[in-house]
């Protein structure tokens, strides 16, 4: 049985999420999709890349595209700090890096705790929100990384 998706005694599935901060909000991504977390290093810009692409990094000989998650999510941009991290994730189609303000922790969330995302007039590009969960008076926004970009955008990323 996977450590990331176990069953509690009640039969409720428990999923582990890596949480990170963006603009003071806490987001979660499935731990199984996280390969590693890096301190920010030199990111080489790619001419003609989409606006949400920061550039590429060399990860032990492999080229990995880094997405500016704040821009992708329509949040205001922020300065890079000591806490800024690049989370290397593996989606159904690609391995990419996402830039986050800081990585917080790994949390267990029972599926029964996950509520559907509140409909707050979000545009179609915001359907990457898989759901939300309340933890310690804080809202955890769970992200479906496969939907972070559209199919066309994933294709465009692959062609960089």
């Amino acid at each position: 049985m996977s450590k990331a998706a176990t069953k509690a005694n009640s039969g409720d599935d428990i999923v582990q999420w890596v949480t990170f901060k963006l603009a003071d909000e806490t987001y979660g991504i499935n731990v199984m999709q996280v390969q590693e977390v890096l301190r920010i290093s030199e990111i080489a810009p790619v001419p003609g890349a989409p606006h949400y692409v920061l550039g590429i990094i060399n990860l032990r000989g492999n080229v990995v595209t880094v997405i500016d998650t704040r821009i992708r999510l329509g949040l205001p941009t922020a300065e890079v700090t000591d806490s800024t991290r690049i989370v290397i994730i593996e989606t159904a189609r690609h391995v990419v890096g996402i830039l986050v303000d800081c990585v917080a922790e790994v949390v267990d969330v029972a599926t029964s705790e996950v509520e559907s995302a509140p409909n707050v007039g979000s545009d179609e590009s915001a359907n990457y929100i898989q759901g939300v969960a309340s933890r310690d008076n804080e809202l955890l926004i769970l992200v479906d990384l496969n939907k972070l970009l559209t199919d066309e955008e994933w294709d465009e990323l692959a062609s960089l």
């Binding site: 329509g74 949040l75 707050v120 007039g121 809202l139």
Partner: peptide, 16 residues
């Protein structure tokens, strides 16, 4: 308030 990404400007966020 917890601000949801990509939301309409009419909404400030959510609160429990």
């Amino acid at each position: 308030l917890s601000e949801m990404p990509g939301h309409s400007p009419l909404f400030l966020g959510v609160t429990p």
